[in-house]
Simulated assay, not measured.
Amino acid sequence: MAARKINPWLKLTLELGPVLAFFVAFTRFKDVSVVVGGVSYGGFILATALFIPLMVLSTVALWRLTGRIAPMQIATLVLVLVFGGLSVWFNDERFFKMKPTMIYLLFAGVLGFGLLRGQSYLALVMEDALPMERAGWLILTRRLAAFFAALAVLNEVIWRTMSDAAWVNFKTFGLTAAIFVFFMAQGRLFKRYGTGDGPEA
């Protein structure tokens, strides 16, 4: 069943809203501690505890409004629940910081597995929005798998060597900007292998 169209600004708000809310909450409460049941929780954990239900609500809202939910969104939500929940439960921010690593390794692994089978799983979820020849999809999938693997490594380096604030800025703005720049850099590929209005190879 085809997804229902919704206002693009509403879609963007639902997709980025939880991440921005996490950033705002961390910025506001990073120097605050709250004692619950004799345990002191810092601003990072408080922001994580806010992020988890917001992520659930935004994902459910997208599903109700569009009539479908992408496998990547489901995988992301599950990892948010698992790693975010572990961070709050054990009062240990490291679990949540590892979440992007797990997400990007999962995406890279799935795309890589498809390539080993001679398939582009990326095409299965994006072909309607971005018509391309098979060769183009295979090239894009190889590049994206490598890109996701690089992001996983970068996330590990940043959270292990830098401050909480540096990691939050990286997660909120750096990852989003990196993905945007990656797809912008694929313009020549889209033009060469596109089967819409672009010229064919």
Score class of each variant (00 low, 15 high):
Glu93His: 09
Glu133Ile: 02
Phe107Asn: 01
Thr76Tyr: 12
Val56His: 09
Leu14Pro: 14
Ser163His: 04
Phe170Cys: 01
Ala25Tyr: 07
Gly187Val: 06
Arg64Trp: 06
Trp137Ile: 02
Leu138Trp: 00
Gln119Asp: 08
Ile45Leu: 05
Ala129Gln: 11
Val125Gln: 13
Ala150Trp: 05
Ala150Leu: 10
Thr76Ile: 11
Thr101Ile: 08
Asn169Gly: 15
Phe23Asp: 06
Gln186Met: 14
Leu130Lys: 13
Val110Asn: 10
Val19Trp: 10
Met98Cys: 07
Phe96Leu: 01
Ala152Gly: 12
Arg28Ala: 07
Arg117Ala: 09
Ala178Met: 00
Gly85Lys: 00
Phe44Ala: 03
Met72Phe: 15
Ala177Trp: 03
Glu156Arg: 08
Ile52Tyr: 06
Leu154Thr: 12
Thr13Met: 13
Ser40Cys: 07
Met102Lys: 05
Arg160His: 13
Val88Tyr: 07
Leu175Ile: 15
Gly38Asp: 11
Val19Glu: 03
Ala145Asn: 05
Trp159Phe: 15
Ala152Ile: 03
Trp167Leu: 10
Leu111Cys: 02
Ala150Ile: 04
Phe190Met: 11
Arg192Ala: 11
Ala108Phe: 08
Asn7His: 04
Met184Arg: 15
Thr195Phe: 03
Ser163Asp: 04
Arg134His: 13
Ala178Asn: 00
Lys171Pro: 06
Ala201Leu: 12
Thr195Asn: 03
Thr176Met: 09
Arg64Ser: 07
Val88Trp: 07
Lys99Asn: 14
Leu116Lys: 08
Leu10Gly: 04
Leu130Trp: 09
Met126Ile: 09
Val24His: 09
Ala152His: 08
Ile6Glu: 03
Ala108Lys: 06
Gly174Ile: 00
Ala185Arg: 12
Arg4Ala: 13
Lys5His: 10
Arg134Met: 04
Phe96Ser: 01
Phe83His: 12
Trp159Lys: 05
Phe182Ser: 03
Val82Met: 02
Ser58Val: 10
Leu154Trp: 04
Gly136Cys: 06
Trp159Cys: 06
Ala135Trp: 03
Lys30Tyr: 07
Ala150Pro: 11
Glu15Pro: 14
Val56Gly: 09
Leu130Arg: 11
Asn169Cys: 08
Leu140Asn: 09
Leu144Thr: 14
Phe51Ser: 13
Leu10His: 02
Arg142His: 13
Gly17Asn: 11
Arg68Tyr: 10
Ala185Gly: 15
Val56Glu: 05
Met184Lys: 15
Gly85Cys: 01
Thr13Pro: 09
Leu115Gln: 00
Phe148His: 13
Phe183Ile: 01
Thr161His: 13
Pro71Tyr: 09
Asp197Ile: 13
Phe95Ala: 00
Asp197Ala: 14
Leu122Thr: 06
Leu124Cys: 04
Val19Phe: 10
Leu77Trp: 03
Thr176Asn: 12
Thr161Trp: 11
Ala150Thr: 08
Leu79Thr: 05
Ala21Arg: 04
